[in-house]
Design a protein around this nucleic acid. Sequence first.
DNA 1: CCGGATCCCAACAGATACTG
DNA 2: CAGTATCTGTTGGGATCCGG
Lengths: 124, 124
Amino acid sequence: MSEDLEYDVFSSTCPSRPVLEDVTGRWGALALGALADGPLRFNELRRHVDGVSQKMLAQSLQALERDGLVVRDVQSTFPLKVEYSLTPTGAVLAGKLLDLIGYLTTSMPSIITAQQTYDEAHTD
Amino acid sequence: MSEDLEYDVFSSTCPSRPVLEDVTGRWGALALGALADGPLRFNELRRHVDGVSQKMLAQSLQALERDGLVVRDVQSTFPLKVEYSLTPTGAVLAGKLLDLIGYLTTSMPSIITAQQTYDEAHTD
DNA sequence: CCGGATCCCAACAGATACTG
DNA sequence: CAGTATCTGTTGGGATCCGG
């Protein structure tokens, strides 16, 4: 039952395409990764994801919240407090993202070398 | 030896940041995923990564080639033949990407439900 | 013909300033 | 503190053109 593998990110019309962009997008991936260690407030998240603007962070978090990967918890105290955390699905995706990021960072030395070689060969 | 964990994607100035964007970017991720099954020519790749424009595919592939994750092999026959394939590092990253994509697609039913619930609650 | 660079326009990202 | 509004610069994409 319910064994429909109808979702294919390689198809441009598949609903999974925009979700993949939310998850692997420029800021979405880093936001998910940052939340893997535990809940964070908006500005904590902003400090952790170095370089992100308020607008893009808010936008990325809204997208992830809509996809059911992140939960936004508002404490209506003063000062206002808003905590973001991962849902179970979000946590799994964040883990896979961190796995990828970890491999990428350990590969950086060889990647840097490749870039230098490439750039030297393309000094047109 | 050489156990410098100096690379951190969460820092905006780290050289790993642009590489992460090449790998997880909109078209880079799909290109890497498509190449995981074996080498492909430019237009085969273009057909596989449904919806990508020529320009963006060429651009994404150049970035991945510069990072040493993809190899561009030119056969100067007629008609011209250009094959793209993964390097060992690229293959590992592609595998992790496909793992993430696989989990995401199997999670799609619950994600769709979440989106509908969210959209209903936000009918301002 | 195939691979890809260019041009031009539309959409999106970012800095700043302002509101609940 | 946690965002929205606005205004502007950068980036993405389709049509078109060029080299092998």
